[in-house]
Amino acid sequence: MKIGIISDTHGHEMAWAHACERFFQGADLILHAGDVLYHGPRNPMKADYNPAGLVQRINACEIPVIIAKGNCDSSVDASCLELPIEAPYAYVVLEGKRIIVTHGDAVMTDAEKDAMARHLKADLFISGHIHQTVLEKRGDTVFLNPGSAALSKRADGRNTVATLENGKIRIFDIDTKDVLMELDI
Rank of each mutant, 00 (worst) to 15 (best):
residue 25 Q to L: 12
residue 106 A to H: 09
residue 177 K to S: 13
residue 146 P to G: 03
residue 150 A to M: 08
residue 40 G to L: 06
residue 115 A to S: 14
residue 154 R to H: 13
residue 78 A to S: 12
residue 118 R to M: 09
residue 84 P to R: 11
residue 163 T to G: 09
residue 13 E to T: 04
residue 83 L to R: 13
residue 94 L to S: 07
residue 76 V to H: 09
residue 12 H to P: 12
residue 172 F to R: 00
residue 142 V to F: 03
residue 48 D to V: 00
residue 106 A to P: 03
residue 72 C to M: 15
residue 142 V to Q: 01
residue 113 K to T: 00
residue 18 H to Y: 13
residue 141 T to W: 02
residue 118 R to S: 11
residue 95 E to G: 08
residue 104 G to N: 02
residue 131 H to W: 06
residue 68 A to N: 01
residue 162 A to F: 01
residue 168 K to S: 11
residue 82 E to K: 15
residue 79 S to E: 12
residue 101 V to F: 04
residue 18 H to T: 14
residue 108 M to Y: 13
residue 144 L to Q: 05
residue 6 I to V: 15
residue 91 Y to P: 00
residue 88 P to R: 10
residue 31 L to S: 02
residue 124 L to H: 08
residue 149 A to K: 02
residue 34 G to I: 00
residue 135 L to A: 06
residue 107 V to C: 08
residue 78 A to T: 14
residue 162 A to N: 04
residue 163 T to F: 05
residue 151 L to P: 01
residue 80 C to E: 08
residue 12 H to N: 15
residue 172 F to V: 06
residue 96 G to T: 10
residue 103 H to Y: 02
residue 33 A to F: 02
residue 35 D to W: 03
residue 143 F to D: 01
residue 48 D to T: 03
residue 53 G to R: 06
residue 158 R to A: 14
residue 34 G to C: 07
residue 163 T to Y: 06
